[in-house]
Simulated scan of single mutants.
Amino acid sequence: MFVLPDDDDRQFAVTLARGLEMLRCFLPGERMLANRDFVERTGLSKATVSRLAYTLTELGYLRHDVEARKYRLGGGVLSMGYPLLAGMRIRQIARPFMRELALQIRGAVSLGMRDGMNMVYIESCSADKRSDTRPDVGAVHPVLRLAMGRAWLAGVGPEEREVALNQLRVGVPDQWQRYRPQLDQAMRDFAELGACFSHGDMQKNIYGIAVPLSAPVDSETLVFNCAVMDHTPQARALLDDVAPRLIAMIANVESAAGLRQTVTTTPPRYPRR
């Protein structure tokens, strides 16, 4: 649902915001949307949706299927996002460390950033390319359901966290009510253990362990996440070992990226949960 800013912000371009909100209406697995879908998901009038859809189509961000009378995302959306990914040097630096850890834990290691109510995956490596634990680059999942999202909330400063929490309370009240206990536990885990956890909240039989980088990269708080299937051999035994290995990997990535001075060659001591 499209919501205007609370204050009278003369710098806020409402028409631009409405157009971008329409592009955000597409969910994973949805190839096409009709005007009525945009109306339902944004709360905008039919006339406004029709005008914005026409403009976005002319600009290449939407494509109109005449026979189906529906819209699909256009190539402009993809080309607009690629410079962001290509410019993230941390992805190239982290990739070999992520691949090594994925092999060690027999799971997947991912890197993500927050976008509103969701976390977006910007890099991912897996011990098995066919593994269900490995998300695609560009995949989005709700902040509150992921260890990665909880680690982002734990890792940012108090003011930024409070703003994000208020947005989540208002924007996704059902998720807020359902996952608030897990979020509270994640905050305690992060304070005590330096990592946040999840089990089955996003996908059945998947353990998630997440840790944010200690310093922002290009003004963004990035989070590394490990995913291990709980029915694989040694999965449960690995859990006590995954978090310290992830923390050690992040220290090495930060050192390689010039974010810290020392290199960690062995996992730190880590109390059992």
Rank of each mutant, 00 (worst) to 15 (best):
R188S: 10
A102F: 08
M1T: 14
A256E: 02
A237Y: 07
M148G: 09
T221Y: 02
M249L: 11
R134Q: 04
D65T: 03
M148V: 08
S198P: 01
F97K: 13
R91Y: 15
Y54I: 10
V66E: 02
R72H: 07
R245C: 03
T55D: 05
R273K: 09
D241H: 05
L56M: 07
A108D: 09
V217W: 01
D136K: 15
A53K: 08
P216V: 07
V211E: 00
V156F: 11
A186M: 10
L222T: 02
L239A: 11
V109M: 14
A13Q: 15
P173N: 06
R169Q: 14
C125D: 11
L111S: 11
V211L: 04
A127G: 12
A108W: 02
Q177Y: 01
A164V: 08
E220W: 02
R36S: 00
Q203E: 13
R89A: 14
V156W: 06
V3D: 12
L111W: 02
P83N: 09
M187H: 02
V263T: 10
Y54V: 11
S45G: 12
G107P: 05
D184S: 11
I206R: 15
Y71N: 04
F2W: 15
L78I: 13
D201F: 08
L165V: 13
N118M: 13
P268K: 05
Q175Y: 00
E160Y: 04
R161I: 11
A139W: 05
V137D: 13
V49R: 05
T48P: 07
T264M: 07
I90Q: 10
H231S: 13
S198R: 01
D9K: 14
C196N: 01
T262Y: 03
P233E: 05
L101W: 08
W176G: 10
M229T: 13
R169S: 06
L16Q: 11
A248V: 00
A147S: 08
R91F: 12
V143S: 01
P271G: 08
H231N: 08
H231V: 12
Q11G: 07
D6Q: 09
A248N: 03
R260C: 12
M202L: 14
C25Q: 04
L59H: 10
E40K: 08
A227V: 06
P96M: 13
Y270K: 00
C196R: 04
R169A: 13
Q182A: 09
G194L: 09
D241V: 00
D65V: 03
A251H: 00
L73I: 03
R180M: 12
L16E: 11
S131C: 15
R106G: 07
P233T: 12
F197L: 03
L213I: 09
M22R: 15
A154Q: 10
R260P: 03
P181H: 11
G112V: 05
Q177V: 04
A215H: 12
R130V: 12
G107M: 14
G200A: 09
A94N: 03
D6Y: 01
K46M: 09
A235V: 13
R89F: 06
S124T: 09
C125N: 07
D230I: 15
F12A: 08
D218A: 13
E67I: 06
P158I: 13
P96W: 11
V143L: 14
L33F: 01
R18D: 03
I250Q: 11
E162W: 10
W176P: 06
L146V: 01
G258D: 03
F190I: 03
V49H: 12
A147M: 05
